[in-house]
Write a protein that binds this DNA or RNA. Sequence first.
DNA 1: TGGTTTGTGTAACTTAAGTTACTGCAAGGG
DNA 2: CCCTTGCAGTAACTTAAGTTACACAAACCA
Lengths: 210, 210
Amino acid sequence: MIQELKEGYGHIFEEALINEIVQVGTFKEVSEGYKLMDIGEYVRGMPLLISGAIKVLREDKDGDELLLYYLEKGDTCSMTLTCCMGDSKSEIRAIAETDTKLIMVPVQKMDEWTAKYKSWRNFIFESYHNRLNELLNTLDSIAFDKMDMRLISYLKEKARINDGNIIKNTHQEIAYDLHSSRVVISRLLKKLEQIGKIELHRNYIEILTL
Amino acid sequence: MIQELKEGYGHIFEEALINEIVQVGTFKEVSEGYKLMDIGEYVRGMPLLISGAIKVLREDKDGDELLLYYLEKGDTCSMTLTCCMGDSKSEIRAIAETDTKLIMVPVQKMDEWTAKYKSWRNFIFESYHNRLNELLNTLDSIAFDKMDMRLISYLKEKARINDGNIIKNTHQEIAYDLHSSRVVISRLLKKLEQIGKIELHRNYIEILTL
DNA sequence: TGGTTTGTGTAACTTAAGTTACTGCAAGGG
DNA sequence: CCCTTGCAGTAACTTAAGTTACACAAACCA
């Protein structure tokens, strides 16, 4: 664990902090699809991502989902931070997008480290900053863009996360993430194929030039 | 200033912190419509609201606006927090919704106080928590609700902020906030009037039962 | 006073998106 | 091998929302 921690966080955390994390943190390896957190659950630990990606979702009263953003290497879940301090429940769902390695830190240490380590403060604030901005981007795209643009952004981001140009998803799954319907997504994807930007296959999509 | 500070924040901040704030903070009184912050500006201070309300907006590339949420007594602007640490520009616009009293604290103190005062840490984290949740609510409403529901929520919130049942806005202004068009808003307002929930007048709307 | 500006009401139309319904085809399992 | 299941394509339709255009009246003001 020390090795992974130093690799991912060695350049931002002080030696002493790294050691503390090693003491109280637990290494965790989860595979694609694993649900790390669900809406309404109480937060017990905060994740430091080593590798992989986690998708963060919002759900409405009818159970419809909406993708908010992805967490990647070096990220942590800001929602966790706020939740654990206020002892409140999670507002979001977190699911491993790929196989993921992470370190779980008990929330009790949060306040202590925030007082003690400048690097930890910076990390936390930067994390908030990034998450707020991601949320704003998502909001922009929903409020200001039409579905075709949202779909293109989605495909780009998804390709980036899985570093490759193949997206292994059905149209239905994409529709869930974008809070749309399968027929609409199929229609728009078809158009993208017709103008030569992508190639459609069963169960996967190949990105050509987006 | 000490008096206002103690009234609004005395029960959450330690005596010593209150004194520090008095030392470096500047009292500010702005009237309705005053622009406190704009997109792209650098953040120089962080506001502690004493009274009044501030509306926080997002803007797209075409200059179209969207209301994100309101800040009220006891709130601060989380965007400021993240921006000043990373030395980045504001992502939002902030305009006084009503006449507003606030204290501006120079951003340099942020890190110091976060290390020094537990009450400050709690305040900051709670502030983030609230803001993230407000942002999620706004996002929910845009992603999951139709315009008629969004309009009703808007009217309710607006009435609450101005504590009264009169909303002094034109249909055009409401359309801007909701990122819609005047005709659509007029249409929906008319429907609300027809089912007896509101009463329409020139330049203002009266809430009956929402 | 008459004329201009501004806010609202409404009709007619366009468009994006969602819905329903059906097709065919590919994969996978007995 | 057939048969079920799941995925994708497509047509036809509905609906919410945006757009254009115009009428009218209150407010403003020269």
